[in-house]
Amino acid sequence: MSNSCLSSIGKKLIMSISGLFLVLFLLFHMSMNLVAVFSGEAYNAVCEFLGANWYALVGTMVLALGFIVHIVFAFILSLQNRKARGTERYAYQEKPAAVEWASQNMLVLGCIVFVGLILHLSQFWYKMQFAEIAGITNQYGVADGAAWMQYYFSQLPVVICYLVWFVAIWFHLSHGFWSALQTIGWNNKVWMDRWKCISNIFATVVMLGFAAVVIAAYIKSLC
């Protein structure tokens, strides 16, 4: 197994597995967020549960590792691919209709996602879990996620940033999900269209879920 990591397919497998892991995390994160739409207290209870205790910390570390692996391998693969393309570029290029825009721009999308992630971490994770570990005190409590949400998502620029971010993640997911399954080999002529459909539905549901929380908080601030 170890030497397959060195092959092109091995590297792709790592992208695929780490990607699917992040997909699962997103699903979990989204479900957790949805709680906030209905009850801030309930949401805070979840935040409390996922504070600076050992299992949450291990979870965070594994998650971070997943991100890092996914990003590092994305760059390794992209660099190799650039090299494989050769030094001369085509002067005239036209994208075939069957090719999804997202599929050819995964790295760019990934970068946007990453920038959004930094913003997101600085706004929430840094002020909650990290603050708890480091013992920093903030304007709201480290476990008062609902308050932080309400605070940030009352600001229109933040809301717009988040929505743009979600769109980028949507594109990234819509290709990434079926692509991961294709890389593992769980695909054939029949399942090709099915997986693509499932990818789109999945990406849409997850991202609508996230967006719902942001929009709900913003609307609440207007009332």
């Binding site: 397919i9 190799q80 994208k95 599929s103």
Partner: peptide
């Protein structure tokens, strides 16, 4: 696959341009 990698071909990112 080993030979393909050795010869400097790139990695598939499932864009489907080849198929198209």
């Amino acid at each position: 696959v080993a030979k393909m990698d050795e010869l400097g071909f790139g990695n598939c990112t499932n864009t489907r341009a080849c198929e198209a």
